[in-house]
Design a protein around this nucleic acid. Structure first.
Length: 481
RNA sequence: UCCUCCAUAGCUCAGUUGGUUAGAGCGGCUGACUGUUAAUCAGUAGGUCCCUGGUUCGAGUCCAGGUGGGGGAGCCA
């Protein structure tokens, strides 16, 4: 019996006339009383393999079990296809059903399903063309992230998933505890006594690996983290998940400009990698998106297709604009003067709403925008203060249709300045002692940023909802599968 | 969490001013067809109209509350 060949390999290097075995899941079966055509997909590629069964040679009882969704093993001679639509096909000599799929119950049909419906059957949706393509691209992007940093001499650092510091200020956290939820030990105030908890104090799931990442950079020069991140925010949007993956490089001796250069090079590299390595899946996703937009009004359609957008990123520099310049552009915009904005920009210091970010990216510059040097009052405590006394060396990269894809900064490396800022913002200093010590012992200028991996995936796949670019999304009220 | 829209067959949806037995397309099943491409053609089965309560002679349709989902906002990556 021939050894199993993956469909991807078989299509790249077809061995015509050779007995071949293929295993996979049935997409459709068609035919008449003489011949049956079975489309098989094994997930190795977006393409199906057509198996051709001569009904006089194949057991009809077995063929009856070959229904959409069933898993089969097919052996036969690989031949050039008589039909159009595929170059090769498999003439079935041996057919085995590995796993039946009752057609009255199997929910996936050979037709287009809504993404909302597929989310409800997340255990089966990887078997669709769309999710197969998304998951293969996702893998390629994971691999490309590691390759990019490895090629640059960065070291991957595993920062903790369970953290004891509650001062990261990046949102609500999920508590980690082994205390009895019904009858926890109580302290004198009648509250749960976390000194008796597993770690001896309160612990949570991480909301960022940045602070620990900085510790790594202060020894290895250039590090990056790529791990799961958890936010217990009650966010119900197409851009937020409670559990997502984040990439956070941290570089010693980088100033804000170096940081922006790296971030732009990184995003450009990832777009190019997708074009170079995932073009078949991207072509499918491109067509899918075009098909979907056909039902939309002209003005709601994207100006560029998915593949054109990826090429655009590769070919064009990002627009770098200081916060102060951005405020001037917004204040002088017709949108602002005609009070089309819900939040009118009146003066320097205002926090930018997503309508403003969208205006800058989608209407004004029509390209990715890097905003930098924000007012210190709207940014985190660890960002490097500028000499003007009112701004910090922060930067956000804004993408069309996604908004903020990267947030980063040069870090405050001066011990006294950092300590003063911690006090100003009422952060408990004792919980930050180890972070402060990096500024006390051999401090160095350094910078870093955070890239939301699923937001990158939205950009690269053209999917609209972040729940459709991660295999098993976690959102408020949803942790099934 | 707020605003807004939605929930009818396995899926996508229609269902008139509240009126008798709730429909279509796709999918499933049965059959026809000598090579199909989401095959085609014919036939057929399939319903807790999201849940609870209310108004009414009568509710898929109206009202209240709840649950679930979409889109937008805030928070952010």
């Amino acid at each position: 019996m021939a050894k199993r060949t993956k469909i991807k390999e078989l299509l790249i290097n077809p061995k015509i006339g050779v007995e071949t075995n293929v295993k996979g899941w049935v997409r459709t079966k068609r035919g008449n009383k003489n011949v049956a055509f079975i489309a098989i997909n094994d997930g190795s590629t977006i393409h199906n393999l057509q198996a051709v069964a001569d009904l006089s040679k194949v057991n009809e009882d077995i063929l009856k079990l070959v229904t959409t969704g069933a898993c089969i093993s097919v052996t036969g001679q690989l031949v050039a296809s008589q039909g159009s639509g595929q170059s090769v096909e498999l003439l079935v000599s041996d057919l085995e059903v590995l796993g039946e799929a009752n057609p009255e119950e199997y929910p996936l049909q050979p037709k287009k399903h809504s993404l909302e419906f597929l989310r409800e059957i997340a255990h089966l949706r990887p078997r669709t063309n769309t999710f197969g393509a998304v998951l293969r691209v996702r893998h390629a992007m994971i691999f490309a992230v590691h390759k990019f940093f490895n090629d640059k001499g960065f070291f991957n650092l595993h920062t903790p998933i369970i953290t004891g510091s509650d001062a990261e200020g990046a949102g609500e956290m999920f508590r980690v505890t082994t205390l009895d939820p019904v009858n926890p030990p109580k302290n004198q105030d009648g509250k749960a006594d976390f000194s008796q908890d597993f770690f001896g104090h309160e612990t949570n799931l991480t909301v960022s690996g940045q602070l620990e990442g900085e510790l790594g950079a202060m020894a290895l020069s250039d590090i990056y983290t790529f791990g799961p991140t958890f936010r217990a925010e009650n966010s119900n949007t197409s851009r937020h998940l409670a559990e997502f993956w984040m990439i956070e490089p941290e570089m010693a001796f980088y100033d804000l400009d170096d940081n922006m250069d790296l971030a732009e090079e990184f995003l450009t590299y990832l777009a190019q990698y997708a074009l170079d390595n995932c073009i078949e899946d991207l072509n499918f996703l491109n067509e899918r998106a075009l098909e979907e937009e056909k039902n939309m009004k002209q003005e709601e359609r994207s100006e560029l297709s998915l593949i054109e957008r990826l090429k655009f990123i590769v070919d064009n520099d990002f627009q770098r604009v200081s916060y102060t310049e951005a405020i001037e552009i917004l204040r002088n915009s017709n949108q602002n003067k005609k009070k089309k904005f819900k939040y009118i920009i009146e003066s320097w210091g205002a926090d930018l709403q997503s309508e403003h970010e969208r205006f800058l990216v989608e209407s004004h510059f029509k390209k990715p925008v890097i905003l930098y040097n924000y007012p210190k009052n709207i940014k985190a405590f660890y960002m490097r203060q500028n000499e003007d006394g009112k701004t910090v060396r922060a930067m956000d990269i804004l993408f069309p249709g996604i908004g903020e894809i990267i947030g980063g900064s040069q870090r405050e490396e001066r011990y006294d300045v950092l300590k003063a800022r911690i006090h100003e913002m009422d952060i408990p200093e004792e919980s930050m002692w180890w972070y402060l010590e990096t500024r006390k012992f051999g401090t160095a200028p350094h910078s870093g940023f955070g890239l939301g991996f699923e937001r990158l995936m939205i950009f690269v796949t053209g999917m609209k909802n972040i729940r459709d670019v991660i295999p098993f999304p976690r959102t408020p009220g949803n942790a099934e599968f």
